[in-house]
Design a protein around this nucleic acid. Structure first.
Lengths: 173, 173
DNA sequence: TTGAACTTTCAGTATTTAATGAAAACATGA
DNA sequence: TCATGTTTTCATTAAATACTGAAAGTTCAA
């Protein structure tokens, strides 16, 4: 059996478990959220077998979700000298994490929505009255709102943490 | 059979179908997203049977998702004089929709996450060195970040569309 | 090359989530 | 009260998604 865990590891286990549960109820699969939580709180990079053991998941599952997290840009592969296997470490800076997630969600969620809205608005260009016109306007409004939101998000994502903070403080002020 | 659809209804059907597909890949079930899209573009309030027919879904499914949308605050029940059954209409103002969704997601996604972070930070208060301290700091940072985000979101949600726009424009410069 | 260490794939299975449809519950006016 | 129109519930079924484990693939040092 494994050695007794230091005290903080209890809290860590809670974090990993709960984060997994939360993740699944906002569209991220449980294992992926758990691996991310685990690596986010790992003092050192971890390899696949450590992760498998700690979370009690299969190799296939661990591998798939590690690749997925790499794809999101939330973790990266680290190679250790003289070792063949891959280690993984998470981005730990909260601001950087936020930016990464915001960009990725924009790409996955907003970009395709925008395509739909544009297409629907375009198809109804020529509606000049009544319900057809209302529909056209609704699509345009949604489209413009999403485009605007994307611009704001791009701007924020390009800011340093400190200046974003300052800017937000002025708002809250 | 039903009468031929006016031209704009073609675009509407596309909107409904695609919105459903999108919804399901960001954590909202397909029928719910479709009903919302349908009502958002409805010239008049609709009743359950119209929705069932238009989307080809069962009564149970329609009912469940209508209630869910009412729960989100995205649609409301409308009663017509001299009619017994309930009609539904969606909030159409984009800014208002945005605020409603933001509030609800905060309640469902951020609030529980915050609980976890607070609990984990608290449990490791007394860690003074090494990995335990790092963990504690990580939890604190996450907690503070989420709390800050929530404040910003509350502030924005309390603004009128016009002033939010103005404020955002200043950011975009 | 060979084979050991490691990674990826994928068919099969398990789990979770959503949808159906019929029965039960509820409301209303006669 | 009863008959009728309407909504809700829920056991069952269907569909989507996640996970496993073993086999195939890859890499690299000897």
């Amino acid at each position: 059996m494994s050695a007794a865990l230091p005290n903080w590891e209890k809290a860590r286990d809670e974090f990993v478990a709960q984060w997994g549960a939360l993740g699944s109820h906002w569209g991220i699969n449980r294992t992926m959220a758990q691996i991310h939580a685990l690596l986010m709180t790992a003092p050192e990079p971890m390899h696949t077998d450590e992760i498998m053991e700690r979370l009690r998941v299969s190799r296939g599952n661990a591998n798939t979700n590690l690749r997925e997290l790499v794809g999101w840009g939330l973790i990266r592969v680290v190679l250790k000298k003289g070792e063949r296997r891959e280690y993984f470490e998470a981005e730990k800076d909260v601001w950087q994490m936020f930016i990464t997630i915001a960009k990725e969600r924009k790409r996955r969620e907003l970009d395709p929505a925008l395509m739909v809205l544009r297409s629907c608005a375009e198809q109804t260009q020529s509606e000049k009255t009544g319900a057809g016109l209302d529909f056209h306007r609704q699509m345009r409004e949604l489209q413009e709102f999403v485009e605007f939101g994307m611009k704001v998000s791009d701007t924020v994502a390009s800011m340093k943490h400190a200046s974003a903070l300052q800017w937000a403080m002025r708002l809250l002020g």
